[in-house]
């Protein structure tokens, strides 16, 4: 192979600009169709509605950067939400217990995934596929025939409350989690290891990184993010149901990938994931204002994700040509 490299435009930077462009364009379209789109209330609302998905996308970003995947995210969210809600309600509606349980069960799920992937050396796809099915089973087992409402005021505050009467709590929670994710990714040893694992695991091992321990930690971290997402979801819905997870895995991965995270590992940023989450959120918000039926919305969402991926692939191909490598 050639030892030479030509000056290539730095890809993520351009990618980021394209993404911001798409977001801006979407917001323009939304504003034209609905004058009140840009009102602070609506903008905060967009963030509020997408907070849980966003938190999950943040967790997915870590896993994807290591070159892994977590298929158990969606069903995991449902399981965490259902099991912890049932325990919360049956022990007297203590809100702190719900919060603690969500994070705890999330990290247990993450540890099992991490254990299977690092100790049993299963592929992330297989390990999390198995856990996906098992999580679904546990959900059914726990929720069978139960109808349960979350009535604690503190939980309602997490779901629909407003900090200082203006900022939706969910929005604040999302921003907090994003800041936390950024600190971990950019300012801790684990963050550096995340990139190293996905970029070149052998090289990371050469540098003395304990690759399996760090990978395990990433999956536990991801589990905790899923736990927080479960908390945000269930407190917002206020009721348990086996569909709480819904399409959230798809949305989370899509948000990360639209934001420039590579499913091949090694590449991704927190900022990109936030923008990715916003793109999907604004899109749905705009479509709703345009009175596009819900069914069509989901098709359009899929199409937009497809286009985003294809544009990215074409762009990569084009750049490879330019730099003289096929």
């Amino acid at each position: 192979m050639s030892d030479r490299k030509n000056g290539v435009l730095r890809k993520p930077d351009l990618n980021r600009m394209i993404n911001i462009g798409i977001l801006a364009a979407l917001m323009c379209v939304a504003t034209i169709s609905n004058r009140s789109f840009l009102s602070p209330g609506n903008l905060l609302g967009v963030l509020e509605q997408n907070a849980a998905k966003g938190v999950m996308a943040l967790g997915a970003t870590f896993v994807l950067i290591t070159g892994g995947i977590d298929l158990s995210m969606g069903n995991g969210l449902t399981m965490i939400a259902v099991v912890s809600s049932i325990l919360h309600v049956s022990t007297g509606n203590r809100a702190w217990l719900l919060v603690a349980l969500c994070v705890l069960i999330g990290s247990v799920l993450g540890s099992v995934n991490g254990f299977l992937i690092t100790k049993c050396r299963l592929l992330p796809f297989v390990a999390t596929l198995g856990m996906m099915t098992i999580a679904e089973g546990i959900t059914h087992w726990a929720s069978e025939g139960k109808i349960m409402f979350l009535s604690s005021p503190a939980v309602s505050y997490i779901g629909r409350g407003k900090v200082f009467g203006v900022l939706p709590f969910q929005t604040v929670a999302f921003l907090f989690m994003a800041a936390l994710a950024a600190v971990i990714l950019y300012r801790t040893r684990l963050g550096t290891a995340t990139y190293a694992l996905g970029s070149n695991e052998a090289a990371a091992a050469c540098c003395g990184i304990n690759t399996s321990r760090q990978k395990f930690k990433i999956y536990v971290l991801n589990g905790m993010f899923i736990g927080v997402a479960a908390l945000l979801t269930v407190s917002r819905v206020g009721q348990i149901s086996p569909n709480l997870g819904g399409d959230s895995m798809m949305d989370a991965i899509a948000a990360a990938v639209i934001g420039g995270t590579s499913t091949m590992g090694g590449r991704g940023t927190i900022g990109g994931t936030i923008i990715g989450t916003l793109i999907i959120g604004v899109l749905i918000n705009a479509l709703t204002f345009m009175e596009v039926p819900v069914n069509a919305q989901s098709a359009i969402k899929g199409l937009v994700i497809l286009i985003a991926i294809v544009v990215d692939a074409l762009f990569t191909l084009f750049q490879k040509r330019k730099s003289g490598k096929d």
Partner: peptide, 8 residues
Amino acid sequence: AMQTFCKG
């Protein structure tokens, strides 16, 4: 992505 699109 194709799955989401087809479902929609």
